[in-house]
Structure formats: C-alpha cells, structure tokens
Amino acid sequence: MRLAVSPTRMELLRLRKRFILAKRGHKLLKDKQEALLHQFLKLITENKGFRKSLEERLIAVATKFLLIQAQVPEEILEGTLIKPEVSLEVETSREKVLNIPLPHFTLIQKGDFHSFDSSAPPSLNRVLDDYLEILKELLRLAELERKIELFAAEIERTRRRVNALEYILIPNLEETITYIEFKLEELERGNLVRLKRVKEILATRVKIKEKII
C-alpha cells in the first residue's frame, strides 16, 4: 500500500533514507531472530534433561522422606521439622542478554536446620540436605523456564517486527518510492514536452516574422 505522502523530491530523499534504514533494521532483526532461536533451542534441550533428572531426584528424596515419616509419629516429626530460627529466602536479580532482562534467583539460608534429636532418625538430616539441594535446583529450573518464556516472547515480538518490515513497511516504502520516482519522471517529461512545445512555438513565430519581413 502506497504511503500518503506528497510526491516531491524532498519526500523521495526522506523515503529513500527510511528505506535503507528499514532494510538495515530488517537484516539486524533477522540476525537477532536467528540468535534468539538458536539460544531458545539450546535452552529447551537443557530444560528437558534438567527437568527430568530433577523430577527423578525429587521422587527419590520424597520416597526417603516417606520412609522416615513411617518410622516417626507425625507430631514428633512435625515438631522436629519446625525450625523458627532457620530461614530460607530467595534473592532475585536481573541481567540483560540480547536486551532481555533475565531473572537470577539465589537461595539464602540463615541458620542450621540439622537436628540431632533422638526422636527423629539421623537419615532425616541427609534427606533435608537433599531437599535443600533440590530447592536450589528448582530455583535454577524456575530461572531456566522463565528464560525460555522470555525468549519465546522476544522471538514472537522479533518475528512480528521482521514480518512487519518484510511484508508491510519495506514493500510500502518501495511502492511509494517507485510512485514518487514515476511521478517525478512524469513531471520531468511534462516539463520537457512543454519546453519543446514552447521552443516550437517560438521557432514558428520566428519563421512567421521572417516571412513578413
């Protein structure tokens, strides 16, 4: 679709600049899209394996915990696991990759949750250690999956931009530039014809004058 601009030489120069810029932008966005896709596929593969191994580990630890649960009365186990002096916090920070603000989670543990209480078996400490490790890995998984979401959104946005440039802006600019060029050539030709005609008229007048004289 032709843009609604006046077909002047100034406009043509402006549109040509825009056209070059659009072409360069298109190329850059195409490169970005490729880089994003490459990273995205890498993240997807990493996530698939990581999630599977984490789920397997989680099941193994949950089974161990279940075996402990069977050996200790509920209220004793619950009481042993209550640790008011221990806290776990998650600190979040962001870093930009390909202009995408990627989240980073860090687990901060205050206090020691191990207990050497004869009511609970010592294997409880091992299970708690395993759970803590898994919690850290879960945060890594959350980080990874959020990255994938952000990459997917960015790929989608970039794809729309590339398409808009490729199928709308660049063709429109091309069409408008061609139109203005055509229009200007038309004007040029009109001018030339007019000048030739004037020249002819003037020549005719000169001839008539010469005949009279």
């Binding site: 009365p73 509920e74 209220e75 004793i76 619950e78 009481g79 209550i82």
Partner: peptide, 11 residues
C-alpha cells in the same frame, strides 16, 4: 515462644 505462628500439635 519464638514463633507464635507455629501450628504443630502437642503429643
């Protein structure tokens, strides 16, 4: 005493 929100049951 430390944390009033503790809801575990007494034995």
């Amino acid at each position: 005493e430390i944390d009033r929100s503790v809801s575990a049951d007494f034995s």
